[in-house]
Design a protein around this nucleic acid. Sequence first.
DNA 1: GTGGTCTAGACCACC
DNA 2: GTGGTCTAGACCACG
Lengths: 131, 131, 131, 131
Amino acid sequence: MYLHIVATNGVPVYEQIARQIAFLIADETLPPGDMIPSVRQLARDLAINPNTVARAYRHLQDLQVVETLSGTGLQVTAQGPAICRQERAAWIRTRFRHVVVEARSSRLSEGEIRQIFEQILTAASAEERRP
Amino acid sequence: MYLHIVATNGVPVYEQIARQIAFLIADETLPPGDMIPSVRQLARDLAINPNTVARAYRHLQDLQVVETLSGTGLQVTAQGPAICRQERAAWIRTRFRHVVVEARSSRLSEGEIRQIFEQILTAASAEERRP
Amino acid sequence: MYLHIVATNGVPVYEQIARQIAFLIADETLPPGDMIPSVRQLARDLAINPNTVARAYRHLQDLQVVETLSGTGLQVTAQGPAICRQERAAWIRTRFRHVVVEARSSRLSEGEIRQIFEQILTAASAEERRP
Amino acid sequence: MYLHIVATNGVPVYEQIARQIAFLIADETLPPGDMIPSVRQLARDLAINPNTVARAYRHLQDLQVVETLSGTGLQVTAQGPAICRQERAAWIRTRFRHVVVEARSSRLSEGEIRQIFEQILTAASAEERRP
DNA sequence: GTGGTCTAGACCACC
DNA sequence: GTGGTCTAGACCACG
């Protein structure tokens, strides 16, 4: 379970965990029936407090994408992937919409916005290919 | 001075004030030499705490886009518009960078991200042409 | 021995086993003198941990509805059915009492509670007649 | 703010708090626009840890029945009462359904179940009229 | 071993 | 003062 947690970007750690796992469920890297890592295991791996992991997991339970097998762990539900795909799409779209609206209300033209976006997208992609 | 403040969306109120005033300076709705409203006046208008307005103004002073006209108030500086335009661009860029990085770590491909972005940009532009 | 175990509903598995066997004894589907399945057998059938079955059986022994037939297994006792019928009634009553108290403390009136109950009872009965 | 918390009945404290406040919002004892007690205040009043209160409040936020006014506290939302009424009804119904299903699967007849229910309901109501 | 709850206390940003 | 996040560690029931 490789998650990329950034402790310094203002986004709560528990939210980063929940989202990244939700996205793994969305594309069925974690298919229904699979167990997600134990709270303690993931806490050790990420070198963070188990409570923080537990909080992320609680959120996934609230979304009904995982359920507890008591004494055993947390299992991806049958409806998990569908719910997570919906969450993922909504989440990305909402964030893009916020930024675009702000850019427009700052009187940047459609062309200027597209240019900024392309710069950043290609930079991010390049950086990811060769980190 | 009409500002649109939302206290419940997580964005600090002082930041909303500072940014919205900076953007008014960027496009010279508030040109160099103009006075911005007094702390008390704006606090009364927006029905918020004067400390919050003061904090926003302090930030604008730090950016050197307004300066105190001794005993009179705060005046937009000559270099204000240039600085604000630069701030505005930096702000937009940062926001884009966050969203793009998040989208990439959600395993969306470069193409998928571009597609979502274009949908939202054209939708926003269309909406603006005919609001 | 067909038991219906749900591991994800928060009710402990050992309790589901103990109760369902007790109810089979209550209506004498398992009459006095019958042997109940061995721990290993039932654990294999239900695909669960033998410790969990053992714990359920221990509880049934504590209630004196089964007793060890030395070296052979567990046998339903003569007083088993009577005890189980009593247990069953007490169990149902307790559950009802909890729900009714909670409903009252939610400020639902006696009439509203009765209405909800009747809806659910008739729905459940209808569903059972034609599953 | 008078809440009745029972630490020993197996129901988590944070859940008792969340539910009781939700029910106060449902019948508009706490109308939209009102602030709910501060985390620290309620924790002091109930003599429990602030984190426990915070957890209850987080749940109410997730339900969108309260929202944070940053630096000020938590406010009941406009849709709060409607959502809480819905939650309350769903909550009671679910609990009744569990009990009724268990009663049926214990081979109690519809008539027997109704009889038990009526005994308990009238007992509870009598007790409440003259505690 | 597993998750769930609770306590205690630290630190942060915001008003 | 407010809520939000995180850490540390205890205790419980369950398998």
